Amino acid sequence: MSKKLTGNGLWESSRMLLPQHKEQSLLKEREMPRQSVMPPSAKEIEMIRESVVLPMVLEIVLKKVKEVEKSDQTLKHLYSAAAKVLAKHIRQDIQHCRRSLMDHQIRIQGCIKEHSEIVYTYSCKGAEGRMTITRDYLREDIGFKIGKYAKSLIAIIQQEGKQRGN
């Protein structure tokens, strides 16, 4: 219970709590053994980081789609279609990442953008924490991820080409 709500009567009055029920609830709270809060594992930290970075990757890819579609490049339809396929794969990964966060009882609560870094607060199975990501790291990781998605798309296209060639 928050310090602001206990002892000032607001919580009690808004809940229509009988004194007997309040005492019973406080007794249960005292009797419950305190669970030791474990810090997030390396896998959970990676999931948090992915859930933060992937939406940024998607935003950049979609921005590039718009830029290509407005350009006068000869192969703009091909580039735009390829970028849209990348965006589709990124969206799928974002959904998978969000499901994994929910399965592991992880919530990302907030974001504070500072000069050269972004600070995210999260809760993981009762443990509260902060994750700081620098803009330089983000730039590098986003470039790496876009490259990874592009390579996987190229591999699919090459595999399709080999199958049609035979």
Rank of each mutant, 00 (worst) to 15 (best):
H96W: 00
H21G: 05
S36H: 08
E59D: 09
L58H: 09
S36D: 12
S41H: 02
L17K: 03
S51E: 02
V65W: 05
S51T: 01
H89L: 08
H89A: 09
S25I: 10
V68I: 14
Q24Y: 11
L58N: 11
S80Q: 10
K28R: 12
A81I: 04
S51N: 15
V53K: 01
V57R: 06
E50T: 00
A83S: 14
L27F: 07
K76L: 02
Q73W: 07
A83E: 11
N8A: 01
L54F: 13
E44D: 06
Q35W: 01
V68W: 03
R91F: 03
K70W: 00
M16P: 01
Q35D: 08
K70H: 05
N8M: 03
L10K: 13
R34A: 12
S41I: 01
K70D: 09
Q20I: 04
Q20A: 13
E12R: 12
N8D: 13
A42G: 00
V53L: 14
P39M: 14
P19V: 02
L10H: 07
Q24C: 02
A81L: 10
Q95M: 05
A81V: 06
H77V: 12
K76V: 11
M56T: 01
L86F: 01
I60F: 09
V68E: 12
K84E: 15
S14Q: 08
Q73T: 03
L5T: 04
K70R: 11
A81M: 09
V85L: 13
Q92N: 14
S80K: 14
S41F: 02
V52T: 06
E44P: 01
P55I: 00
V61G: 10
G7P: 02
V68R: 09
V52I: 15
L10P: 00
Q35E: 13
L17P: 00
Y79N: 05
N8S: 06
Y79L: 15
G7K: 09
L26E: 14
L75W: 04
E46H: 09
H21M: 10
D72K: 10
L78N: 03
C97E: 06
R15P: 00
K43D: 11
H96C: 01
K28L: 13
Q24S: 11
E31Y: 09
L27V: 04
A42R: 12
